[in-house]
Write a protein that binds this DNA or RNA. Sequence first.
RNA 1: GGUCCCAUCGUCUAGUGGUUAGGACAUCAGGUUUUCAUCCUGACAACAGGAGUUCGAUUCUCCUUGGGAUCACCA
Length: 482
Amino acid sequence: MIRTRFAPSPTGYIHVGNIRTALFAYLLSRHDEGGSFILRIEDTDQKRFVDGAERAVLETLQWLGLDWDEGPQLSGAEIGDFGPYHQTERREYYQRWAEKLIAAGRAYADPYTPEEIQGFRDEAARNKKAFRYRDHRPNNPPEWNGTQPLRFKSEPKDYSWHDEIMGDSAGGRDAVDDFILIKSDGLPTYNFAHIIDDIEMKITHVIRGQEFIASMPNYLSLYEALGEAPPIYAHMPHILNETGNKKLGKRDGAKSVNEYRAGGYLREAMLNFLASMGWNDGTEQEIFSPTELVEKFTLSRVGRSSARFDEKRLLWLNGQWIKRIELDDLSERAADFWGEMGQKADPDYKKEVLSIVRDRLKTLADLPLLSEYFFSTPKVDWPMIDSDKQLKKLPRADQISLLKSAVEKLSKISLTDWTSENLQGKLNELLSLTDSKPAVLFSLIRFALTWAPFSPSLPETMILLGPDETLARLQSAIVAGK
RNA sequence: GGUCCCAUCGUCUAGUGGUUAGGACAUCAGGUUUUCAUCCUGACAACAGGAGUUCGAUUCUCCUUGGGAUCACCA
């Protein structure tokens, strides 16, 4: 049974680069029937702790639908038999394993002050040599009383291992050092804690960013000292920022997943996009539903090179997903995105509006722009017409007279004949009657009706607006244009 | 700087010891006798460079170059 984990630290928001790692770990566990996805909070860094960060992470995962079988819940409770799932509540485990290492002569108290160690480091730098703590290993370290850092007594040698993504890898003895197991504040370092937890929680596959590859010899060395077998590893290539010159990170403005959520992106699009960076199924399929992702995901098809974060592609995918999901579903998700007037409108009417504007939506955040004119009379905005490249060629007087003929024509349609087919026909008649090009006449009417940059087809718009409102809007355009 | 990783259109990627090197985004041009958007069609566009192995390398090897990561009482 595959058991994977996602282990964020509550030091801030979770950005799109981090979440892809969570996604791949999730997919791997779900692809395996009976697999488990575990969420562990690595909160051992008290200095960088950010209040509320954990909740934000949980909400993000929940929104994306990356449900976990074990770990903390939004309610504050925890589920699973291998808890607790906060590292600060697992001190007894670290203590127990640390004592085991001490007894085996593989861990010792660090007698130096941070200043002294910095001195060693500076000296190494002056001599242009790599700094290694083990070169300064004390001969008779004091007994560990919990106030000094506890260090791993390494036995440097070369390591090679298999990585499910990176292939066969190797690291030399130079990378092995006496790293800190437990800090002077009594809490374990990541290097120690994650290994103990992975052992205790019976994690089978470790999926993480490739920045940890450099530490693999250290980890392997620790597993040996612990007498435990390491899990299967899969180190993922990084996602680079848009210019491709750096690992995507918060400092360079990597957005949080929540920003995309608030920006009107659908979880399906986000997941689809994230998966496409580094993974594909070998076919020419571009759109994958979350279910298909689970069905088709395998580590063997994850690439080794880093990818850039290209928002244009995400935007396209989002448009695709907005068109794909059920109207009722879309309607629920759009609930918070309606504009000022839209949110107060009748739900059924809103759903109708949504059904005709959805094809034009790139994100749900576009909704007000594309829908407010259905809920309230838009402000007449002739400059909009003046800046249209087709319409600006036509004198104002001609524009007005075109609108007048439109009013005349449309006002003859009775309420019962106010149908898509009829409107279409009348508009076409109007076209030959006024001897104008569709691009001119219909654009003009469209603007007069909506004063929006995009809108659904004329008949659709007119039906939703109704005859009275349609004619009234044309009239006010005429009046204001004079 | 030491160590490790990576290298196909601008971007995400497929692919093979012999292919017209495929798809998608973006861009541009047409079309859908109704605009904008959607949609459809088409165009533009790539194997970083140099050696070696080979009858033949984008593919295998080495070097160079470029990019990334890592060298914390952060994860």
